[in-house]
Design a protein around this nucleic acid. Structure first.
Length: 259
DNA sequence: ATGGTAGACATTCTA
């Protein structure tokens, strides 16, 4: 089976690109972030027409996440129970695979804006809550995949110009430590299970011709629990949609699982 | 040091 994640930066603007991408890349599950629409505006009919079920949680203007799935989904949990948050940033679902049920979580981690912003401690608190949520989910679901826009570049090799970015938001040590603490629950960064091209990124700023210069960061990740890590045979970033007219600023990431 | 682009919405905020 194949699972993927894509921050589409408005599902309204990117609906046709999403459907085109699914037609060319018929993955079993696609996690979406930054829907930027309320649930009543979610394009469920078009997605079902394309052969997918969907679980989603949205809000006006910002945030919003979804899981699109070939198989029906069940046990849908929106956000993190016990963490009081007005932002719609997380959705967890269960789907069936030949090897048994798989828990798929779509995450849109806070950006943080800058180290001196009030959004920065919110980001770290959100990460701490996510760690607790995923720890609890792992107790119940040994086959777990956490996919999304983590808004953290784990390592300097995930940054086009580490000297320029040193200490900045998305790269700062406390953010990297928060992501490591999550991974230390026993998850693996699927992308780094395999040899990858140098300077592989998943996000490029719209400004300053960043994509053309490959001035990007790798901030979109697929994290796998041990049984899924063992089943993972490939992981890649698909840069093609970033070349589209009116592209998202993020590229999809795809993992192949031998299940 | 500043602002560059894009999306949603309202003339600014977020990324």
């Amino acid at each position: 089976m194949k699972i993927a994640t894509w921050n589409v930066n408005s599902l309204k603007i990117r609906l046709n690109q999403t459907l085109d991408w699914l037609a060319a890349n018929p993955v079993d599950a696609l996690c979406l972030q930054e829907l930027k629409l309320t649930d009543d505006k979610f394009p469920l009919a078009a997605i079902e027409e394309a052969g997918y079920h969907a679980a989603f949680t949205g809000q006006k203007t910002y945030n919003g996440v979804a899981v699109l799935s070939r198989a029906p989904v069940r046990d849908v949990v929106r956000n993190m129970p016990g963490f009081d948050d007005t932002h719609q940033r997380l959705i967890s679902v269960t789907l069936d695979s030949p090897a048994g049920e798989v828990r798929v979580i779509s995450a849109y981690c806070p950006n943080g804006q800058s180290l001196d912003s009030e959004k920065y401690p919110y980001k770290l608190a959100w990460y701490a809550a996510l760690r607790e949520h995923v720890a609890a989910e792992l107790q119940r679901y040994p086959r777990l995949a956490l996919l999304g826009d983590f808004n953290v570049a784990p390592d300097d090799r995930d940054v086009h110009d580490p000297a320029k970015w040193e200490g900045q938001v998305l790269v700062s040590e406390p953010e990297r430590a928060a992501l490591r603490a999550l991974i230390e629950l026993g998850l693996s960064d699927a992308f780094r299970l395999f040899e990858q091209p140098e300077k592989s990124f998943s996000w490029w700023d719209y400004r300053q011709l960043a994509f053309r210069r490959n001035a990007g960061l790798r901030i979109d990740h697929i994290l796998l629990s041990p049984p899924l890590r063992d089943a993972c045979t490939a992981c890649a970033i698909d840069k093609e949609p970033r070349r589209n007219d009116q592209p998202s600023d993020h590229a999809p990431v795809v993992a192949t699982l031998d299940l």
